[in-house]
Simulated scan of single mutants.
Amino acid sequence: MLDQIIVDQAVRDLRPDFAVLAITAEGLVNGPSDDTAFDWLAVAGERSGDAQEHPHVLAWREAYQAFGAKPKRTRPSVDALIRRADSLPAINKVVDAYNAVSVEYVLPIGGEDLDGYHGAARLVRAAGDESFDVIANGEPAVEHPAPGEVVWRDDEGVTCRRWNWRQCIRTRVTEDTKNVLFLLERLEPYPLDRLHEAGDDLAARLRVISPDVRIQSRLIGA
Rank of each mutant, 00 (worst) to 15 (best):
D155F: 01
A85Q: 10
M1E: 11
Y117N: 02
R162V: 10
I82D: 03
Y98G: 02
E62Q: 15
L187Q: 14
Q167F: 04
C168M: 04
R218Q: 08
D17N: 08
R214A: 13
A44V: 09
G27Q: 07
A19S: 15
I23E: 06
Y117P: 00
E149H: 12
D133N: 05
I169H: 08
H54V: 07
E197T: 13
A10Q: 10
A85L: 08
D201M: 09
A22K: 04
L2Q: 04
V208M: 02
Y64L: 13
W40G: 03
A59I: 09
A85S: 14
V150L: 05
A222Y: 07
T177G: 07
R153W: 01
A22M: 05
V95C: 03
I209R: 01
L183A: 04
V103E: 01
S48T: 05
I82R: 05
R61V: 05
L181V: 06
E156M: 10
V7Q: 12
Q167M: 08
A51I: 09
Y98S: 01
Q167H: 12
V20Q: 03
G199K: 01
P71V: 05
Q52M: 14
D129C: 00
V124A: 01
V57L: 15
T74P: 00
P76T: 12
I209L: 14
Y64A: 12
N92C: 07
R84F: 00
R166Q: 15
R162W: 03
W152M: 13
A90C: 02
Q4L: 10
D176I: 06
E185R: 15
G45L: 03
E175P: 07
T174L: 08
P191I: 09
A203Y: 07
T74M: 00
D79T: 12
N164H: 13
V29M: 09
G116I: 02
H56P: 00
A136Y: 01
P191T: 08
R162E: 09
K178N: 04
I109A: 02
V103Y: 02
V29G: 03
R15Y: 00
P71D: 06
P89K: 11
E46A: 10
A97L: 03
E156Y: 09
R61G: 06
M1A: 12
I6V: 15
D113R: 00
A66N: 09
G128N: 03
A146D: 13
W163S: 12
V124D: 05
G157K: 06
A146E: 15
A97G: 11
W40F: 10
E175G: 11
A25M: 11
G49T: 07
L58E: 07
P191A: 14
S102T: 02
V101M: 04
L183K: 04
N30R: 06
C168N: 14
